[in-house]
Design a protein around this nucleic acid. Structure first.
Lengths: 229, 229
DNA sequence: AAATAATTTCAACGATCGTTGAAATGTGTT
DNA sequence: AACACATTTCAACGATCGTTGAAATTATTT
């Protein structure tokens, strides 16, 4: 019973912290605001987690393994349905990278929403972006980049890394749900319409990768006279 | 002389604020840190600007007109070199949108760097993203979207707006210069290599737009039987 | 039931926050 | 020279920050 109670309280703290960190950033929120939202005394935050920074890390850690596992399985599912003679397409790989996230957002309205918005802020923060994203996501991202390299065998590795940079930016801005798309399109599009993002992103990004890594002159060249490689 | 002196001080404040806001976010910086970096008394910040928030707005405003004017001229230059029978290509339009910014970054090492990093954070912030970006950039962005619509006449407007969302995310993450690309590529790519970004982004984004707005079945259809337009 | 451990409450610490009024200094005009 | 005005310095305001020790309460084990 103690276990269950503890779980309940520390989860309420994590939920409140997640939401407020996502909305206002790490420094834009106070411990007292978080604990007021969690309905508990301020000191409890320091009992369950030991500092503001550690609470932040706990917020990040709680969901990162779940989402990375989902994406890894999506990638493996794609890879199992292909072999060396029939490699996976770029679209399929990108879809495995983004669908699990956007699907979850489209279905599960409030649960994960704030977490992804937090990721969006972190990814674009000079303070946290490099270190935090690298720490939590690089192993998985490297696997996707390997897959992309297999799908575009004669590509320059640097092109793939830059393509991933563009993909990462496009994906996280979509997570941010800032409402800007609503303003810009005067209501035609909604920032929180993840089905719309889901339907468009793989096609957009895959075409970008192909244009970058397999430009037409190179493609024609490869078809015409197979070079050394 | 008073004018010049005033300019000098308030510019030093703006520079310090710009750099620190970009590095740590609005709430991650104190007035005292800013004024220490500017080498002036704290109270001077409230004399020249009247609050922290107003200082932030002044930081945003100082450069936004310059960069928007540059991009507008780049777009008009592209449009002047085309006419109705020979419309501008998507690549040219995207290049006019991103080149002025990245060019400036590639040339002018420190001057504009922090400003763009700040934009990257703002764009992905639920708190500021919607309102601030809309306020400063929407008029220009609407012009670019008009141009894109002319370049892809039979496209669904929603596709163009979403394409712009992806473009915006890719561009601003590149501004953020978080160093993540360096970690991920183990030194092969550098986050601050704006020439590399410059060379790749228009091709990537333009291909994305085309795949989204003019998918192949539609393209084939257009070529086969020229419709009303 | 007694004892031990886990959780929660309460009150407070020093430090620092954004902001301000008033005095001091500098600058340009008569 | 005296003046008005812009700029800068200095010291401080109340509020709030992250954090903590110790007491009070609740749950678990003996």
């Amino acid at each position: 019973m103690a276990q269950k109670k503890k779980k309940a309280t520390s989860d309420r703290i994590l939920n409140a912290a997640e939401r407020l960190f996502a909305q206002h950033g790490f420094d834009g929120v106070t411990m007292r605001q978080i604990m007021r939202a969690a309905g508990a005394d301020v000191a409890l935050a320091y009992y369950h987690f030991k500092s503001k920074r550690d609470l932040f890390d706990a917020v990040m850690l709680r969901r990162v393994e779940v989402v990375n596992e989902m994406r890894l399985q999506a990638l493996e599912r794609v890879e199992r349905s292909h072999d060396k003679d029939d490699p996976a397409t770029v679209e399929e790989i990108i879809a495995a990278f983004v669908h699990p996230l956007l699907d979850q957002l489209a279905r599960n309205q409030e649960e994960w929403r704030h977490y992804y918005a937090l990721i969006a802020q972190i990814n674009n923060s000079p303070e946290f972006g490099g270190a935090v994203m690298t720490k939590y996501f690089d192993p998985l991202v490297r696997r996707f980049i390997q897959a992309l390299r297999r799908a575009m065998p004669d590509s320059d590795p640097a092109d793939i890394f830059w393509g991933y940079q563009f993909l990462s930016g496009a994906l996280t801005l979509t997570f941010a749900e800032t409402g800007r798309l609503d303003n810009l399109s005067e209501g035609l599009c909604r920032s929180d319409d993840m089905d719309a993002a889901n339907a468009r992103m793989p096609a957009f990004i895959a075409a970008g990768f192909r244009a970058l890594c397999m430009p037409k002159p190179k493609l024609a060249q490869l078809k015409a006279k197979p070079k050394k490689k």
